[in-house]
Design a protein around this nucleic acid. Structure first.
Lengths: 351, 351
DNA sequence: TGACAGAATTAAAACGTTATAAATCCGGGT
DNA sequence: ACCCGGATTTATAACGTTTTAATTCTGTCA
């Protein structure tokens, strides 16, 4: 019945501290200890302090399984991972950002493949049915993404990377791809380029439309020729993209300005140019979006704009936390702007 | 008390099936249902069949929290993620491989950052103390890796990516970096190169020693000059590596053959060559290890060997499963060979 | 002196499993 | 009929929490 903090027993080496052991150590009941740790105002302040001290001393950490069983809350957030396609370094940066934001919150990150088998919704259904997580995060969002629909129907917390065209608002984090496309066009036009070319992601992704709109309307405004490459998408095999680009360079009036949405596409474009003996800066220019630092080390240098995926992951985790705490989904949206500060003007690393 | 499989009640829409609901549906007790689902031979075969059918019909899935609380097994494996450095695409491929191998096993993958704060062992201690997982997987293994030591002391299942120099054997999956280094030297020597250069990872990693040994002994055997670049490592900022390489090219007798252990290093090397007006194939050659497909799209083309990180993740997860099932740790080792089949002989994508 | 309200604490149930120990069933031998 | 043993089945406790509904304390006021 020891209630003096000074002579509490030290943590026994072998067995892990539990509410019961804390109760025995402090002389209070399990219920009181539980409430005290939750800072319940119904518990006397002195008691709360005593219990807190005992818990710290013993290194008490609540058992996740027990809490989860009792409350139904898993303290887990799931990332739906597309295991096939990736922007270079995407997964790494994104995950790092997520874990960073979740650090110290008690939530842990669970990774589930989003593209196995025929039923595209199976992973989400599985999570919903068996309450495998308290929230979900995913990428490659489509205009009418079935995952979004299903999650909204079930009022389940989630944050999508990318917007949808559903009327009901939902939390998302997105990169302003329209602004990127516009800027890319402006840059190329500024260099005197008049025949622009763009390879788009697959049509079903929402950001494809944003890219298209930004590209087309800005090119029209500038009064320059522009084409969206037919027959291939960002997800096409690199070899096929290369093939298509090389073929296009054999035409009468090949493009002289390339907007590249991904790093791989940019590299393919560069090699297609090299393969057809076109010289960068003379025959054509390339403007690309980058998410990794590799372009710093590639010759010839090209202009790039940075999409911060670590920040994206961080923001998405933050919004998910707030959504799970019951904040209004409609307000939980965030747009990342093309990083003009860190715009990459082919810095000379000799300096 | 209905025991006929034919007219079992269908799964009620709202509430999730549980042992109790299955017991009510079949007329057996909870204990019997539990045992039947575990295929306990003490339960009559007919009963087992009946229960299995009812479970399937109801879509029963055991509650993870309850099972975890009762058994102490989490059904979780944790990947210790280094959030700072990455081989391009490493995390993505590795995780994809892991989830692939774990598909259908009931295990899920948890990602924990391995490099926050000052205490390098904190994540592992946290997992051990609070039994946050049944097994652990990590990369960037050191010769006397403290994580390995701690995990072994606690007899906790793990698989390391890379070997250690501890005498007690433990499960690992490793890439044969010595073989890679030897082959790289052979290739470069085969092209007539006589002054080879290598940038190593930090000394503390085990594979650094393997690379060094393979490189040095093969170069000696071939009787060619060779140097290990001083003052920088694979993890140095790309700019510093570039700086060092450019400086080295100004010397009397610059290297004419570069062995690159990572993609970024390879790119940096290429740009350093370009920056100092050296021509690949004439003034120097580069041989690199690649883990992503980007080299297919880089000009000038270089020879590369493929390290399959998806396969690595898959194998590590498989070994971990077997270790958790009690297999002898000493036998759970796997070496991945440099992929000679998929050796990249600068294929001409024009073909 | 009691009664009583509010403050503080607690007993006990529940979450869904698994596992120990005990109970029931059934057929065969006496 | 009766008992016995093996085959089945079951009641129950436990895992570590949270929370509902008491219960006990304390001091105040009639």
């Amino acid at each position: 019945m020891n209630r003096e903090a000074t002579d509490l027993p030290i943590a026994p080496a072998g067995e892990k501290p539990t509410l019961r052991s804390l109760a025995e150590a402090t002389g209070f009941s399990i219920a009181t200890v539980s409430r005290a740790l939750a800072d319940d105002p119904r518990i006397a302040a002195k008691t709360r302090a005593l219990v807190a001290e005992a818990a710290a001393l013993a290194g008490y950490v609540p058992d996740r399984a027990a809490r989860r069983l009792r409350t139904g809350r898993t303290q887990v957030v799931t990332l739906l991972l597309n295991t096939q396609h990736e922007f270079l370094g995407f997964t790494h940066e994104f995950l790092s950002g997520m874990t960073e934001a979740l650090q110290g919150t008690g939530y842990s990150v669970n990774v589930v493949p989003d593209d196995v088998g025929d039923d595209r919704l199976a992973p989400v259904r599985n999570i919903l049915r068996n309450h495998l997580a308290d929230g979900v995060v995913f990428t490659r969002t489509e205009a009418f993404d079935p995952r979004v629909r299903l999650l909204m129907e079930n009022d389940f917390p989630f944050v999508s990377h990318g917007r949808t065209e559903f009327t009901t608002p939902h939390p998302f984090v997105d990169f302003d791809n329209e602004a990127f496309a516009r800027q890319a066009v402006q840059r190329l036009v500024g260099k005197g380029r008049t025949r622009l070319s763009l390879i788009l992601p697959e049509d079903r992704f929402t950001f494809t439309q944003h890219l298209r709109y930004g590209f087309v309307s800005e090119a029209r405004a500038a009064g320059v020729d522009h084409e969206i490459v037919d027959g291939v998408t960002l997800d096409s095999p690199a070899a096929r993209i290369a093939e298509t680009l090389r073929a296009s360079r054999l035409g009468d009036n090949p493009p002289d300005g390339y907007v590249c949405v991904g790093e791989v596409t940019a590299l393919v474009t560069l090699s297609a140019l090299a393969d057809s003996d076109a010289v960068l800066g003379r025959d054509a220019d390339v403007f690309a979006k980058r998410a990794s630092p590799i372009f710093d080390n590639i010759r010839p240098r090209i202009d790039t704009v940075f999409e911060d995926l670590r920040e994206t992951g961080r923001k998405m985790a933050e919004m998910l936390l707030r959504r799970m705490q019951g904040e209004d989904p409609a307000t939980l949206t965030h747009m990342l702007m093309p990083d003009f500060e860190r715009l990459h003007h082919s810095p000379d690393t000799h300096a």
